[in-house]
Nucleic acid binder design. Structure first.
Length: 489
RNA sequence: GAGCCACUAGCUCAGUCCGGCAGAGCACCUGACUUUUAAUCAGGGUGUCGCAGGUUCGAAUCCUGCGUGGCUCACCA
């Protein structure tokens, strides 16, 4: 035993002594396979057919109410809760005493007859009880549940046991992901898996995690994005691909950021960013309709209407409307000065696009509550997007904002290898100027482009943030089962 | 990284302003109770008051430092 019993809390000692008593009586407290015929929910919904019939159920004992020679309990399985009822004159004194000794938290198998009590509660009248797992620790309080955020994360299993809405959120997450996959599969997109460990961490501006492969004596990065590998697949002849998987970014933790998060990236050859806009509208609205059954989504105090089409605003135009400044008429220095006058912080040597973007994020983003596409981002902040034909300072790139938050990012992919090389070189300049988040130069990717990549539209959707929206929660922690936290001690 | 706030029983929380025996509910233990459902009734408090110092006759309470977490801001796709 790991810990000397002398140091255990009395509550824990009591349960361990019950465990010993059970073993002394020849009862194994940790059972094996148990044949179930129904879930708690199935008994509730199928009561009219099941009344008077025998069922087998299993779950965790969540409440006990003794009444002398009869007793009630609540059994909780994944589907919900069902009441059980025992009478000593029906199960006999041994089983009845056995039940009285059970603890809240124990996992039981129950065989019995479905009936309705005189107060109307659908109940299983117990004929036989099987202990499947003895619980040695008390559960959190039955009425208030587990509230302490730190404990909820450190012991998510307790959170899931006692806070039903938490379980609901993660079921919803699973349904959202399933809806996304089904939508894409139905349209002929192929799900692929590209490296999590990459010699060059490309596809985004972020600080990567590093790791090391012994046999190859090789430093590797955990990927910050799958983008450059998915585009290699376009070069290789895959025409419609997607990947739903984790990205890792070595950055701060907040209500909107977790170091590992889930990204959906989609690439479609011979398409462009206008196709990606339609795809985004259909993807998000289909997922919402399938999972929630509605396109009107309550989020905080507001109702978000996801019915397409969504407004498309030009990046520079939204900035002009909010600030009265037409940045297309300014150069980089003037743009930085404008930012400075608005008390928006920008780097001393910020590029034109970086300065405008700083203002955009400050003045425009939070106001984009209903779904809105913002189009044509500056090339300075879009090193992988195709340059606009009619304005070389801009790219065919859009972002989707909902509830003031970026949900999707997409572009007509840059497939000009020479332009791509120059963009990487610019990023290299930034890196040398001390920007730890500048894109890395990926020579092999440029080589791939040199063989020819078909024109393509690419789309990235932050799955966690999409789930946050549909689940109406304000923290990314509420949609990640085990978010990163500092371990104890 | 900065500011504010929190940390007291297994859980949810009072008590801290204004220093004076460590509290409640749930859970748990003992007993009663054959249709309850936050069951009820009678009895029982189970504790490193986050940690370490300091002030004081006396600190959960005041002061300092630290730790962990939350929120906001900053940073960041």
């Amino acid at each position: 035993m790991h810990e000397p019993e002398g140091e255990l809390d009395e509550l824990l000692l009591v349960r361990r002594s019950k465990l010993r008593e059970l073993r002394e009586k020849g009862i194994e407290p940790y059972g094996g396979r148990y044949e179930r015929t129904h879930s708690a929910l199935e008994i509730h919904t199928g009561f009219t057919d099941l009344e008077g019939k025998e069922v087998s159920i299993a779950g965790r004992l969540m409440a006990k109410r003794g009444h002398g020679k009869a007793a009630f309990g609540d059994l909780q399985d994944f589907s919900g809760r069902i009441q059980i009822h025992l009478r000593q004159d029906e199960v006999g004194p041994d089983t009845y005493q056995f039940f009285k000794k059970l603890d809240i938290g124990d996992i039981l198998g129950v065989r019995g007859t479905v009936f309705r009590t005189k107060t109307g509660e659908i109940t299983v009248g117990v004929k036989a009880l099987t202990l499947l797992a003895k619980s040695l620790r008390p559960l959190p309080e039955k009425w208030h549940g587990l509230k302490d955020v730190e404990l909820r994360l450190r012991q998510r299993y307790l959170d899931l046991i006692v806070n039903p809405e938490v379980k609901e959120t993660f079921v919803l997450r699973s349904k959202v992901v399933r809806a996304l996959r089904r939508f894409l599969d139905d349209r002929g997109f192929l799900e692929v898996e590209t490296p999590m460990m990459q010699p060059v961490a490309g596809g985004a501006a972020a600080r990567p995690f590093t790791t090391y492969h012994n046999a190859l004596d090789l430093m590797l990065y955990l990927r910050i994005a799958p983008e450059l590998y998915l585009k290699r697949l376009l070069v290789g002849g895959f025409e419609k691909v997607y990947e739903i998987n984790r990205n890792f970014r070595n950055e701060g933790i907040s209500t909107k950021h977790n170091p590992e998060f889930t990204m959906l990236e989609i690439y479609q050859a011979y398409a462009d960013y206008t196709d990606m806009m339609v795809l985004t509208e259909e993807l998000v609205s289909t997922a919402a309709q399938e999972v929630l059954g509605t396109l009107e989504v309550g989020y905080g105090d507001t109702v978000i209407n996801l019915r397409p089409p969504w407004p498309r605003l030009s990046f520079l135009e939204t900035v002009r409307q909010r600030t009265g400044i037409d940045f297309s008429q300014l150069d980089a220095r003037e743009a930085r000065e404008a930012a400075h006058r608005m008390e928006v912080e920008v780097e001393q040597n910020a590029l034109w696009g970086e300065a405008v973007n700083a203002i955009f994020e400050e003045a425009v983003e939070p106001a984009l509550v209903q779904p809105t596409f913002v189009l044509d981002y500056p090339v300075d902040i879009s090193p992988l997007a195709k340059r606009k034909a009619d304005d070389p300072r801009l790219t065919y790139r859009f972002e989707l904002f909902i509830a003031g938050r970026e949900i999707a990012n997409a572009f007509s992919e840059l497939n000009d290898p020479l332009d791509q090389r120059e963009r990487f070189l610019k990023q290299l300049d930034k890196q040398q100027a001390g920007d730890e988040e500048a894109h890395m130069f990926d020579e092999d990717f440029v080589t791939a482009l040199e063989y020819g990549m078909p024109p393509a539209g690419g789309l990235g959707i932050g799955v966690d943030r999409l789930v946050m929206l549909l689940a109406n929660v304000s923290s990314i922690r509420e949609v990640i089962l085990f978010p990163l936290h500092r371990p104890r001690e």
